[in-house]
Structure formats: structure tokens, C-alpha cells
Design a binder for these strands. Sequence first.
DNA 1: TTGAAAGCGATACCAC
DNA 2: GTGGTATCGCTTTCAA
Lengths: 327, 327
Amino acid sequence: MQELADAAGVSIASVSRVFSGSNKVSEKTKAKVMELVKLSGFSPNETARTMAAGKSKLIAVILPDVENPFFSKLLSEIEEICVKNGYTMIFFNSRGDSEKEKDIVSKMIARQADGMLIGITHATSERISVLQSAKFPVVAITRAIKGLNSVGVNHKKGGILAADYLFEKHCENFFFFGQEDDEKFLGFRERLLERGVTENNIQIFGNQSWYFTDFDCAAKTMDDFMQKLQNYKKAGLFCINDLFAVQAISSAHRNKINVPERLSVVGFDNTILCNMVYPTLTSISQPLENIAEDSFELLSKKIKEGKEGVKQTENIVLSPSIIKRES
Amino acid sequence: MQELADAAGVSIASVSRVFSGSNKVSEKTKAKVMELVKLSGFSPNETARTMAAGKSKLIAVILPDVENPFFSKLLSEIEEICVKNGYTMIFFNSRGDSEKEKDIVSKMIARQADGMLIGITHATSERISVLQSAKFPVVAITRAIKGLNSVGVNHKKGGILAADYLFEKHCENFFFFGQEDDEKFLGFRERLLERGVTENNIQIFGNQSWYFTDFDCAAKTMDDFMQKLQNYKKAGLFCINDLFAVQAISSAHRNKINVPERLSVVGFDNTILCNMVYPTLTSISQPLENIAEDSFELLSKKIKEGKEGVKQTENIVLSPSIIKRES
DNA sequence: TTGAAAGCGATACCAC
DNA sequence: GTGGTATCGCTTTCAA
């Protein structure tokens, strides 16, 4: 930068002003410097800027599983927004590991990250306090989290939509593949009971920490399920995500259970997979673009507010919708 | 750090030595400092370290499309390796945009990244020279690129494996979905001709810049293809990636073409999708873990070598294999 | 083995 | 408007 300043016949302070877009520079100086910049291809060292200014333009993004098409799409969306706004994104795949989350937080503090976007599927108080103790604002995404800024989707409502759909498809027995403390299931169950379905016609399976389990195992569970299905006239299955719903459909094929005649399936996330299977998959759609945009916006706001903004948290809740297809 | 030094009764230089794991510190000093570190939870500012030492422990990763399960898995693998080795990963989704690639390179130079891993599907001389001009080592992944360090897979060989498989499945007409300049197709075509298949029984469709096109459009193309298939006894279809192969299978369902009786399908990448569809998809497998490990290793090596290592490039070529399933 | 001090490359305050 | 300069937090050379 010194060279540039010398070449332009000004001080390095003025060159800095040109880069920061300060209005305290004469047009002449600005033009001269800009010209030299173009010629030399000079670009300021971001590390030094971070050090001097205290802001890094770095945003950390933590997602539980990029291999899930929902999250990879979300990541892609977030990355685009970050770049568009002049931020650099640092990405981590947490695999739901809270220890790793903790390490990441300290690492990011050490790198002076300006903020963090994190997808948490199972909130625990320890997890939350780690995040609260970060030196930068944090926004939780896809789920509303108490005590943290968040942009989440109402999963309970998603469950209700799924229940209505399967009920209207004349299902008589209802199944949920996932964990029982999932809000999706609570809404699903509640609505079915409201509709007059009896308790014992609502069942849950795959009630484990499935998220990162191997899919072969899931396939087996699905096959067992399909076997039992022979006894029912028409069943409805709601899966925790599209990945498992798609597996259900192929398992149905294997076990000669006709979809949707004998079994209707509803997935969650409305990923690219839905249109890839046959029959196409009905799924609950999370407003992915909105999650990405709103969370980035909220984070930017908190970053601007600085220490004052950290005090009180904001929670944005978005509504899911159902995309009806053949299943 | 000054506080820490004072508390330990040593100079900040010694504290620094403790952090760098230097052997020029007495065990006593080291122990004392370590203890204080634990108590205070202090961790050194990475920005300042980068600035002073000139190495950032930052690695940039550019992939063409994270939404493709192959790349999201690759990303996940690379992320894990980076973290394990104390590096922080900065991720970008290029969508095949060479302008964006150029911007990223300058951005990463400004951030003093130590190295870059980049997935390029279509190499052009301009792209390559941009990468060569970076101030840090670059390793191209998934494809061998002349003039750049690379860890690639032999796509031609993949085409040969696909050809053999479809031939052995008694297909009489052969189709490739993808671009004609793809090495996969060259190998595919060559092997079929060797096997005695005539030119006009080998056809190509979807010969466009498909990669990021909307899938609805691809579905339509597939449907048209299936219609034509009515005239053939047994056809073989080789797709540029699993995403399209899966679409082909569901399109076959829609058009009442029985897989594999009337149509055999081979995908590419051997992604998680293969076991999700019915019938399960035969696919050419790229050794993903090896790509991730070898490329990271090669990059590390080049980083260590410094300027000397940049001079000559290394190309590692890995072989694909075929994973036979029901399709 | 240890400490003092010179950078690393910008920003921003202060005086002119 | 502009220039001088302290400063950000650490690494590393040089002397001791």
C-alpha cells in the first residue's frame, strides 16, 4: 500500500480512505488512486484490515448434515447471499456433534468472525449457552430456539398438514417415521386425534437418533414395516424427511405395496428428490429461500447493532406448506 | 497475551513459543503457561497470527454444485479432513461460473489463504491460468487438469465399465445422456464399437450444458426418450450422473418401460441415491474418500514446499469401479 | 532459555 | 482534505 501511495504522490492514509469509500477524499486523489489500483491490480490485505478494524467480514455457517439435499440447498442459498453481500463464508458440517460445535465457536472467536448461522436439530441448554457466550451474534436456523436469535419453521404445523393430507387420502392407519419428541409428530398426532382417529391407529417407528445412521439399516426397518402393512387396507406414512420417505417408496415397491392405493406417503423438506421418484412424493415444504434471506438479514442487523443488539433476541417463525404430488 | 505473560511472570515472547510448540522453552515455563491458559480460557487471535506469520491455516474449496449428492458428500469429506488437520475451510459453490472463480481467487489471495481445492468440470485455458497465477498452491479435484496439480478420476475408464455392463445385459441399442465431449462418452462409445456394436446403435441425447438446468426440463427429455424406446427390444442407458439416471428410472415407470427387462440404466458417481430408487441403480463409483484424502495430502505437500513446489505440478489419477445393482 | 523490539499491512484518530 | 502515527495481537530475529 505504501508503494501505491508513493506512486500516487499521496499518503497511505489517503489510499486507505479511498478503499473505505470515505467521503473525506478529493475526487482528484480518489481518481488517481483508483487508476493506479487498476494498473497494479492491487487489492488490500483482508487480514490486516480485520486486525486493524476489528471486523472480518467472515460468517461461520454450521449445518448438521450437508448430505441431506435440504441442507445442501440451504447451504448453496446462504453461500450465494454471503458472497453477494461481501461476506466470506466458513462452513462446518456438525453431524449433530455438540463438542464440535463448541470447538467451532472458539475457533471462530479466534478468527474474529463477525457472526454465525447455525442449524440445530436438537437444542440442549448447554448447546445454547455455548452459543450465547460467543463474542459475535448467532442466529439459529430452521428451528426456533429459545434464548437465541432464530429463523425457524413451524414443524408442528407441518405435522398438521401431513395429517390432513393423509386423512383426506382415506388412510385408516397412520404411521410416523422419526423421533417421538419431534414437533412434527406432536402436530401430526394431535390433528389426527381431532379428526377422530383413535390412539392405537397412530403409531411411530424409527424412533431413534436416525439422522446420521446408515441407510441400509433404515431400509431394513422400512421393509419390516411394509411386511406389517399387508394387514391394513390403506395406511398413511409421514416421514421425518424426504430421504426416508423416498426409501419408504422404494421399499414399498420391493414389498409389492402399491403407492398410493395401499399406502400414501408424505415427506418433509420438499427436496429435489420428490420429483425424482415414482410415484412422485408429496412433501411438506420449508420456505428455504426465506430461511436463508431472513436469517442473513437478521444476522446482519445484529452485527450492525453490535453489543447492544446481542442483549435481546429475535425469533422469526415461518410457515411450512404442503406440496401435493402422487404419493 | 500480555496479561497471560504477566501472570506467568514471563515475556510475551515465551508465551508465543509455548503456543507454537517451540522446543526452545523450558518445561517449567511451558507448564506454568499452559496452566494459566486453562484457567483463563485464553486462545490466541488467529488473525494476528496470520498477519505475523504469513500463514493463515485457511483453505478455500470450490465445487461446481453442492446440490449434487456426489459433491455434497465430497464436501463433507473434505471438511472433516480440514478440521482434523487444523485447517479452516472456506467454501464456495461456483455453479461452473469462471468469473466467480476469478473473484474467489483474488478474494482468497487477499485473505492469505494457504491453498485451494477446486472442482472443475470444464477446463479452459483462461480458467487454468487464473488458477496458476494464485499466490498459493491449487489442486484440481475429480478431473485431471493439465498445468495444475490434480487428483482426478479416469472418466474414460468409467465409460468403458458402463459399456461392458450394458453389453453384458444384452442391450442392443445404447444411449448416453450427457455432453458429447465428455470422456465418459468417448470411452463408452469406443468400447461398444470394439464389442461390435454399430455406430447407429449408439446415440447421444441431453447433449447440452445440462449440469445446472432445471430438472423439469430434463424430465421431459427423458419422457420423450422413453417414448422412442417402445421400438426397441432392449436398450442400455448411461447417464452423466446419478441425478439423471434416477430421473430416467422414474420416467421409465411413468412410461411403462420395465427396468431392467426393457431398459438397463447405469449412473455415475455411485451416490446415496442408488439404493433409494427402485429398482436400485447400477452406477460407476468414483473413489470419493481417496479423492478427498489424496487431494488434501497433495495440497499440504505443496503448501509445505512453498514456492519451490509451485513450479512443477503433480497429477494423480484414480480409477473408477462399477457397482452393480438391479438396474 | 529468555526478553526486547522490529515488523506484518491495514485503520482511524488527531493535528494541520 | 491530507499526512503522521499509534494501534490491532502475534511471530521471530537478535542479543544477552
